[in-house]
Design a binder for these strands. Structure first.
Lengths: 80, 80
DNA sequence: ATGTGACTTACAGTCCGTG
DNA sequence: CCACGGACTGTAAGTCACA
């Protein structure tokens, strides 16, 4: 249904916005997904999934990615 | 083991700080765990577990809690 | 009002690969 | 270098009875 679809979209909105944000920062730092993954100690395919909003990342891994991108958590969520 | 314990502690640091932050904001808003849970559409025991840093919360639930506390994500993570 | 243990189901996260 | 798939393991999600 239309309304249900809207609700589902709004659920994954945050994942999409977060994934785009990660990708932006990664490219700004001239890193490949593999490099980011290694620095964050996560798997390369997982970084791709996060950027494509296919996985609902946990807080501990959010922090790992932020550290790997050398930005603080508050900045990652700024205007998100 | 001791080293493992240290590693786990540093891992769960972020969960502890996040949980404390949530508890602070909840109390500032004069809400019970039950009230917050209802507003965030989560279970009351789950809110308790988050505040006690017993669960590694995912991004979608982080957003639900932030919305229920009427603060934005960036503010929740400010100086965390 | 909250903490806790026990529990099932869903999905986070890894590892192998392909185009 | 990245998107995407299948198969797998571990753990988060979510609920409950009781303290």
């Amino acid at each position: 249904m239309y309304i249900l679809q809207l609700a589902m979209d709004s659920n994954s909105d945050i994942l999409k916005r977060f994934g785009d944000r990660i990708r932006d920062y990664r490219k700004k730092n001239n890193m490949s997904q593999e490099e980011l993954a290694e620095k964050a100690r996560l798997h390369r395919t997982y970084i791709g999934m996060i950027e494509r909003a296919e996985k609902n990342i946990t807080l501990i891994n959010i922090e790992k990615v932020a550290n790997a991108l050398e930005i603080n958590l508050s900045e990652i969520f700024n205007d998100l």
